[in-house]
């Protein structure tokens, strides 16, 4: 089974800062990591390859320094890595990004059996890119998958939606976005990190390699325009109630009542 995993290099969230003028995330001096759910997708691809055989290609669109994320993916065990980098790609919204990623997939020979990505990124959090790639390539898509099995030529998937556990059968090729519950991400071996930097190559494709015109990509190719960007609000801390069980229960009921969450009329008395 040939698998493509899309990875995005994102700033480490506790450090996020916004450039108010340009409405972009400040990346200078901020540690970048692979989007954590993309790591889950990559781990899932490694486990599928172990069972089904095949080849894993990781693809990322981003500035030249995104090479670091791809090298890390190679260290985790991916077979090849493609960096889609071109100054024309800058300022892309999710649609323009998906278009470039879909064009890169179309260029792969043979066409992959399975496309995986995280269900959202921790920086922009839209969850758009996976579904848009699937639409452009006219592939079936399932979002938020937390279990993957093969049954003959079909993928058997599970996902939680609205309190139900869906079981979905999908023919290949298909695109899946994965949730954090799919599988735990393993630690990297230091020898694999060394080898990923000293022994492997990164394939680099620019707009012209993908047959893309400047007005299809980046800011010009974007259908949306960002008006305002702000970091997520700090979560207010919880309160820990200590004491005897009776005291804790009374305090909790009192608190819930005072917040009108628990209606006194609906009690069990």
């Amino acid at each position: 089974m040939n698998i493509v995993v899309f990875v995005k290099q994102v700033p480490d969230v506790p450090n996020i800062r916004i450039d108010e003028q340009r409405m972009t995330i400040i990346r200078e001096g901020v540690e970048s990591i692979i989007n954590p759910l993309d790591c889950v997708a990559l781990q899932a691809s490694l486990e599928l390859r172990e069972r089904e055989g095949g080849c894993i290609t990781v693809i990322s669109m981003g500035p030249p320094q995104s090479e670091e994320a791809l090298r890390e993916a190679l260290a985790a065990g991916a077979d090849q890595a493609i960096l889609l980098t071109d100054s024309a790609f800058a300022g892309a919204d999710t649609l323009a990004t998906s278009h470039v990623l879909a064009m890169a997939v179309s260029k792969l020979q043979p066409f992959p059996d399975l496309l995986l990505c995280g269900m959202q990124t921790i920086d922009s959090d839209t969850g758009h890119v996976g579904p848009q790639i699937a639409e452009e390539l006219d592939l079936p898509q399932v979002c938020g998958v937390n279990e993957i099995h093969m049954d003959g030529h079909l993928l058997v998937l599970k996902r939680l939606s609205e309190g139900f556990l869906d079981t979905i059968r999908v023919p290949l090729p298909a695109l899946l976005t994965v949730s954090k519950d799919l599988c735990p991400v393993k630690n990297l071996s230091l020898g694999a990190v060394e080898a990923a930097f000293s022994q492997k190559d990164i394939i680099r494709w620019a707009a012209h390699d993908l047959g893309l015109q400047p007005d299809e990509v980046g800011l010009k190719g974007s259908a949306t325009h960002v008006r305002k960007l702000r970091p997520p609000a700090d979560r207010t801390g919880g309160r820990i109630v200590t004491g005897s069980p009776q005291f804790i229960v009374d305090a909790l009921i009192h608190k819930l009542e005072s917040m009108s969450i628990l209606d006194e009329e609906d009690g069990n008395e």
Binding site: E31, I33, E67, E68, R71, N187, L190, V193, E194, F197
Partner: peptide
């Protein structure tokens, strides 16, 4: 270097969790 940054992040994650 890029590699040294990845090494630091890899070890820090392992050290903090394990």
């Amino acid at each position: 270097s890029m590699k040294q940054a990845v090494i630091r992040r890899t070890v820090r994650k392992f050290a903090e969790t394990r």
